[in-house]
Design a protein around this nucleic acid. Sequence first.
DNA 1: TTGATAACCGTATCAGCGTACGGTAAAAAC
DNA 2: GTTTTTACCGTACGCTGATACGGTTATCAA
Lengths: 222, 222
Amino acid sequence: MPRTADHDQRRRQIADAVCALISDHGLDAVTVARTAAAAGMSVGLVQHYFRTKDDMLLHAFTTVSARIRDRAEGHIRQGTEHRRPIARVMAEVMAEFLPLDEERRAEYRVALAFAGRALDAPALAEVDAETARRLRRDVARAVHNGKECGEVDPDLDPWPAAVRLTAVTEGLAMQVYRDGAGGAEGGGAGGEAAAAHCASVIEAELASVFTGECRQYADAPS
Amino acid sequence: MPRTADHDQRRRQIADAVCALISDHGLDAVTVARTAAAAGMSVGLVQHYFRTKDDMLLHAFTTVSARIRDRAEGHIRQGTEHRRPIARVMAEVMAEFLPLDEERRAEYRVALAFAGRALDAPALAEVDAETARRLRRDVARAVHNGKECGEVDPDLDPWPAAVRLTAVTEGLAMQVYRDGAGGAEGGGAGGEAAAAHCASVIEAELASVFTGECRQYADAPS
DNA sequence: TTGATAACCGTATCAGCGTACGGTAAAAAC
DNA sequence: GTTTTTACCGTACGCTGATACGGTTATCAA
């Protein structure tokens, strides 16, 4: 066998370049040539790993979606392992989706750009829908689990609750992004005020679902 | 003075063509040539009314944003004139934003496409932010008015409430769009089930803000 | 009637895009 | 070393897009 290279590593490298370009200059600025330059390779090599530009974009979107998903699921898994109150874990997961620092803002820009293009690109739309479905499913599961330990009213239907919680999260993310873009930001004080503000909204929303105390498990020590 | 033409009518005609193209084939499919064809005129005439393509898109976005805004504000105005319970009026306004029928779906596609492009087009972003601000302001006002007639707890801060209500609306719109796109839809039964489902979520959300009965005004006769 | 001005058209121009393709270098197998 | 397969490069090609521009027609003022 001839000369070898780490296929996945290369593809990730390209996907990262795509994301950086989108975040910095928008999806329209993503060309194969620019992507290659940003990834520090030639146009031909990009073609070697992705037959078409659409393949490249799809892989980039799949990658970021997976990253976001994993972060959320990891949060949940760790929370349940440590037997922490579900409402607390959910608060963290929801906050994870808000573009409050520059890193999440970048990620949000990428996600939104792809969401826009997904309107007439079924493959992208499917990825988008799938991640949304999984998130909603996870939240619904969390609410359901909340019943068993007494945080949630046993008569509450988990599905509408999950829909509500994911909806406020997404909607809040949009508002945070729009407001943060225009003016305040810059220093950090404005951002933190916004964070506190959001936290209170999320808290209010969670309080309408997680109405009881966690009676079965004690909070983790640290 | 020479040959005259209705300037605003022409510009609206072009904006409509842009929106139709976006809704049918996405923002990337919008070219000056195609827009001209869709509007039934020549490329040169489009240029006569818009110096650049960006001007054209900006005007189109401004137009649709204004339309959406006016519809919402009209709803509110009419509701307050008829002395209807504020919670009912808000429910209608929020439902107005959900892409439940094909008309709103088309509008939603246009709005989302522009939102995506707004990420690196400050002029578009400003329009987007402005409409969001105004909507939130109107909702906050409605909540505030709710205090005077007894529908809202006097101690409730209208601003976080408005943020919550607009956030769920936006988030719900996204979910409705994504789910409706993939499978069910088609007939209308699925869509109506989704509508009922959404209504219950909105109702739950409104119930957590409008906790009292409207004691000052009677409901309108018809 | 006759300019003058604005509405309107069609096309040329030029840049930037995605992709095809021929070529080179390197590493594994023998 | 030779061969073979793959990683990788640079460029040429075809196409499409936005914009520039010169020309034509219709209307109003004089």
